[in-house]
Design a protein around this nucleic acid. Structure first.
Length: 832
RNA sequence: GCGAGAGUGGCGGAACUGGUAGACGCACUGGACUUAGGAUCCAGCGCACUUGCGUGCAUGGGGGUUCAACUCCCCCCUCUCGCACCA
């Protein structure tokens, strides 16, 4: 970093000041934290970064917000845990390794080193002793242990799953490597292929994950809504339809059992096993052709695009157990195998999709629910009627309303044994297998005689072999590395093969917050006492892009760890703050847009404190931040003004008495008052909703007043003790946001003990009280005049003064006064 | 389509439980200091009319409640984000 700015006489020397204090904090271990039962704990966490190379403005914003809260809470007396680490596994490392002909580990650790230096250059108050990197075997070994414990508990299983397969690269692709249905590397068509993969049974926790949303009062409603939708609970019924002339039963799931008498055909997913029934029906070839075509079309489908509804009769019928009617079975491209049973009863009169399908294939439409205000006719319906209504054409259920019919029909089906009530979730089990190198090895062994076996605990960790390295084949090198996969079966001792899949990197980030409580612990994954002491996280901060996956997985994992008796809590994050994106010129910063601002350039030009100050000042944290180069200059100017003021009044400040005189003159009282009002404002802004922008503007007001009433050192109009109080308060209030700057000025103004050790200033309500208040006088709701009065004034006096007011009299004129409304100490409205 | 959030000066944004709309900052304009000003300081700055005092109009649009609405209610428009054939 250049030191040229040091020579600039117009600016304070932020380079040497920031270096000085960063070294001071490091050597003094200012932010090291231990368990201390005498003080209240506060666990503040920001989402840890992926070590992609260098920090970007999103990090700067996220961590600046976090650092203010950390420093603020320390000054308020909390014992603050504020750790940082690295979400270090992931695909980009493999890609970069290929590109630069290096090893993912080398690339990752070099990035970590560099980014750590950048974070330190920003002056963030982390306890670096707790730093962790998820690619460290000492971290992921415990994750492997969790995996085995979960396996033993039945929370892990293996099943066939459809993956993205590129035939020409002979490799599995991650979803982000599939672009418009084509391979990112060779542009070949990506096809689905069935492969074995490992799954976490997150659906076992679906109900709890949903119901606990209720108690997450410290989370933004937006995030909770997203989580609820993602879990997607729906209550309905499963009904069995026997397939005519076979032993097969087609099971469907519906939330509308009240429409069952209107089912005129069945739709099953192209992947549904009973599609096989088309064999020997004469429809076979057509069906096979349709299924193959649909699978490809689904892969090609762009997000947001809806395929035209299509289907084909599979040549078989099933029987509606309620009516005994024969219903044709179709396979249709809009039925999802992953949801429900992969089969639905089609009720064209009451479901728009089925309606469109029925029209296209000229299938019967039968109205069985009538709206209350009109009569629908099956013959000329223009759209499905999806709302609830009164049942018709439904045997003895006719006449019931939809709600009652739902329970009656469900009960009937259960009683007769051809159905049962059922709750279905949109949430699927979490597929964690990745056919990748740079991830946590899944600690399992495949033995041809004993089947799948977990790696014995004492053999953990299964270390990712450093001698392997991704190559251009695109396939995981673990797959070919005999020294890795060749092993012996822990059960029979025979030859066996290790699992070569690695875990989804979301697994690492699902428990890192717990490990921060005891990163040095070697006896097990978590030191129960310390973890129980620190958790839950009191305040979690990160981008809203993690609102669903990361936060849901972390919640799930916490519950699993609780049930495995590693921790006591069930919810990891008590309060959540999701900060907005950093945008520039109205769009998200991105390389392709060419509007990226590099934090390094800014630090070099203005110093870390200015960068922090502006990113906090420009918008409240939850909103998007519109980056403005001019705005940064404004922040820089402000700090320079404060610096100059302190420098110019150094002697006065050094010699000022610590105690305020008991009797203050009017001008001094005004500054004293503003000081206390500012302390009050900043304190409430910081503790309520982290609105740093308004907190900073309050301090700016104080500084503006200070500058306007104290012109120079010779001017003794304002009592020195009052000036000192104002300056000290300014520095204390600003110190969480611009810590180097305030530390330096704190020292310059003669304080022995560093500012980090100070307690947060408190305000005196009496001092903050206004001596005179402005009361607005309105006539018929329009502001016509103002009164400067004592806050002690009574409503009657106020009314009196209002009616005497010239302006008020002028606007009232000759009209009779009908009413006078007095809002105490605020406003008087005369209605004439 | 469904869900959530947001629309306030030229710009970023303020405004407590309905009670002075536009704090603070940026930009801009005029002035001072100066060899110079991209530094600093002072003043102005929602729009319209007005020499001025002032007056009128303004919080996406339209209605409503109220003495009083950025704030509450109804309808509509726009934007952002999330989900998206979930039966």
């Amino acid at each position: 970093m250049t030191i040229s700015s040091q020579k600039d006489p117009d600016r304070y020397d932020f380079v040497s000041i920031e270096t000085k204090w960063q070294n001071h904090w490091l050597s003094e271990q200012t932010f090291k934290v231990d368990e201390d039962s005498t003080r209240l704990k506060y666990y503040l966490l920001e989402m840890f970064p992926y070590p992609s190379g260098r920090i970007h403005m999103g990090h700067v914003r996220n961590y600046s917000i976090g650092d203010v809260i950390a420093r603020f809470q320390r000054m308020r007396g909390f014992n603050v845990l504020h750790p940082m680490g690295w979400d270090a596994f992931g695909l980009p490392a493999e890609n970069a390794a290929l590109k630069h002909d290096t090893h993912p580990a080398k690339w990752t650790y070099e990035n970590i080193d560099y980014m750590k230096s950048q974070l330190q250059r920003m002056g963030f108050s982390y306890d670096w002793d707790r730093e962790l990197a998820t690619c460290d075997p000492e971290y992921y070994r415990w994750e492997q242990l969790f995996f085995i414990k979960m396996y033993e508990k039945g929370l892990v299983y293996r099943k066939l799953t459809s993956v993205n397969w590129c035939e020409s690269c002979q490799t599995v692709l991650a979803n982000e490597q599939v672009i418009d249905g084509q391979c990112w590397r060779c542009d070949n068509q990506v096809l689905p292929q069935d492969m074995h993969g490992w799954f976490f049974r997150i659906t076992d926790y679906a109900d709890e994950l949903l119901s606990e949303c209720e108690n997450l009062t410290g989370w933004p409603e937006k995030v909770l809504t997203m989580q609820r939708n993602w879990i997607g609970k729906s209550v309905g019924v499963e009904i069995n339809f026997p397939v005519e002339g076979t032993d097969h039963v087609l099971t469907i799931f519906t939330t509308r059992p009240d429409t069952i008498f209107g089912a005129t055909f069945m739709s099953i997913a192209p992947e549904h096993p009973l599609v096989e029934l088309s064999k020997h029906t004469g429809q076979t070839e057509l069906v096979e052709e349709f299924v193959a075509r649909t699978k490809i079309a689904k892969k090609k489908q762009r997000p947001g695009e809806e395929l035209e509804k299509e289907g084909i009769f599979i040549g078989q019928y099933c029987i509606n157990p309620f009516t005994g009617n024969r219903i044709p079975i179709f396979t249709a491209n809009f039925v999802l195998m992953e949801y429900g049973t992969g089969a639905v009863m089609a009720v064209p009169a009451h479901d728009q999709r089925d309606f469109e399908f029925a029209q296209k294939y000229e299938l019967p439409i039968k109205v069985v629910v009538q709206p209350e205000n009109k009569q629908l006719d099956s013959e000329n319906l223009s759209a499905a009627f999806e709302a609830p209504g009164i049942l018709t054409n439904s045997a003895h259920f006719s006449g019931l309303n939809s709600d009652d019919a739902k329970s009656a029909i469900t009960a009937f089906a259960e009683e007769k044994g051809f159905g049962k009530s059922k709750t279905t979730f949109r949430l699927r089990d979490w597929g964690i297998s990745r056919q990748r190198y740079w991830g946590t090895p899944i600690p399992m062994i495949h033995c041809t005689t004993c089947g799948v076996q977990p790696v014995p605990e004492q053999d953990l960790p299964v270390v990712l072999p450093p001698d392997a390295k991704p190559d251009r084949s695109g396939r995981s090198p673990l797959h070919f590395l005999e020294s890795f996969y060749r092993t012996t079966c822990p059960s029979c001792g025979g030859e066996a093969k290790r699992e070569t899949d690695t875990m989804d990197t979301f697994v690492e980030s699902s428990w890192y917050f717990a490990r921060y409580a005891c990163p040095d612990y070697t006896e097990g994954p978590l030191d129960r006492d310390r973890v129980d002491h620190w958790l839950p996280v009191d305040q979690y901060i990160g981008g809203v892009e993690h609102a669903i996956l990361h936060l849901l997985y972390a919640r799930f994992f916490t519950k699993v760890l609780r049930d495995l008796h590693y921790i006591s809590i069930g919810e990891p994050f008590k309060n959540l703050l999701t900060q907005g994106m950093v945008i520039k010129d109205g769009v998200k910063m991105s390389k392709s847009k060419g509007n990226v601002v590099d934090p390094n350039d800014l630090i070099e030009e203005y110093g870390a404190d200015t960068v922090r100050l502006f990113s906090l000042f420009a918008a409240p944290p939850e909103r998007d931040l519109d980056w403005s180069d001019k705005g940064v200059e404004g922040a820089s100017r402000f700090l320079n003004r404060v610096y100059r003021f302190v420098e110019n009044n150094k002697n006065l400040l050094l010699n000022a008495p610590a105690q305020l005189p008991s009797d203050l003159d009017e001008k001094s009282r005004a500054l004293h008052r503003k000081t206390h009002q500012t302390i009050r404002k900043v304190t409430t802004d910081l503790e309520n909703d982290f609105h740093f922008n308004t907190a900073i503007s309050a301090v700016m007001e104080l500084v503006n007043l200070m500058l306007s009433v104290v012109s120079d050192e010779a001017d003794h109009e304002i009592m020195p003790a009052v000036i000192k109080e104002a300056v000290d308060s300014t520095l204390l209030l600003l110190s969480p946001m611009t810590p180097h700057f305030c530390s330096e000025l704190w020292e310059i103004t003669g304080h022995e003990e560093s500012i980090e050790k100070q307690t947060w200033p408190s305000f005196n309500a009496e001092s903050a009280k206004e001596e005179e208040i402005t009361v607005v006088l309105q006539v018929n709701g329009k502001v016509r005049s103002r009164l400067l009065v004592s806050p002690e004034i009574s409503d009657d006096e106020l009314k009196e003064l209002t009616l005497q007011d010239d302006k008020v009299q002028k606007f009232v004129g000759a009209k009779p006064i009908r009413k006078v409304i007095v809002v105490p100490k605020k406003l008087v409205n005369v209605v004439a």
